[in-house]
Computed example of a mutant assay.
Amino acid sequence: MAREVQITFDCADPAKLAAFWAEALGYRLDDPPPGFESWEQALDAMGVPPERRNDASAVIDPERAGPRLFFQRVPEHKRTKNRLHLDLRAAPGLQGEARMAALEAEAERLLSHGATRLHRSDPAPPLGAGHIIMADPEGNEFCLD
């Protein structure tokens, strides 16, 4: 039996992190509940006070092919390396210098949206194709692969 998957991020600023990952993946903010034209309208109707309106956010794949990403505010900060991370397939089918050039271009694009570059691993045949380790605006590691 197939199951849907949602990936949840604990974070300090759900709106900011949702915007980053929407940009990184080509996703968009999730739709407001049925019957509402905007999230502001929905949150007003639910009686959510202004100081709680950034407690959660979500982004979705416009094609509905990829998993929904959910961002929830938590009081504690990230402390150590992720045990799970996302690989962004930024250079599928490319090899060698063409692959690394595509990864570098994507790294530069994401840096302009708040990412941090952590490490580059150059190709190491026969198994290593090369990748770049990055962190999102709250320090969650991910790879450009």
Rank of each mutant, 00 (worst) to 15 (best):
M1C: 10
M1Q: 12
Q6L: 07
I7G: 07
F9P: 05
F9A: 05
C11M: 13
A12Y: 13
A12K: 15
K16N: 08
K16M: 06
A19Q: 07
A19C: 04
F20Q: 02
F20Y: 11
W21C: 00
A24W: 15
G26P: 09
Y27E: 02
R28E: 12
P32D: 14
P33G: 07
E37I: 01
E40W: 00
E40A: 08
L43T: 05
D44V: 11
M46Y: 15
G47L: 13
V48M: 15
P49Q: 11
P50W: 12
R52P: 05
R52D: 10
R53W: 14
D55M: 11
A56N: 08
S57L: 07
S57F: 08
S57W: 06
A58I: 04
I60V: 11
I60C: 02
G66A: 13
G66W: 05
G66H: 04
F70T: 10
F70C: 02
R73P: 13
V74M: 12
P75W: 10
H77W: 01
H77F: 00
K78L: 07
K78F: 04
T80A: 06
N82M: 14
N82Q: 11
L84M: 14
D87W: 01
L88S: 04
L88Q: 08
A90P: 06
A90F: 07
G96A: 00
E97R: 11
E97N: 02
R99A: 05
M100K: 05
A102F: 09
A105Q: 10
E106Y: 05
R109T: 01
L110I: 08
L111P: 00
H113P: 03
A115H: 09
D122M: 02
D122G: 03
P126I: 01
I132H: 13
I133C: 09
E141L: 14
E141C: 07
C143R: 08
D145K: 04
D145Q: 00
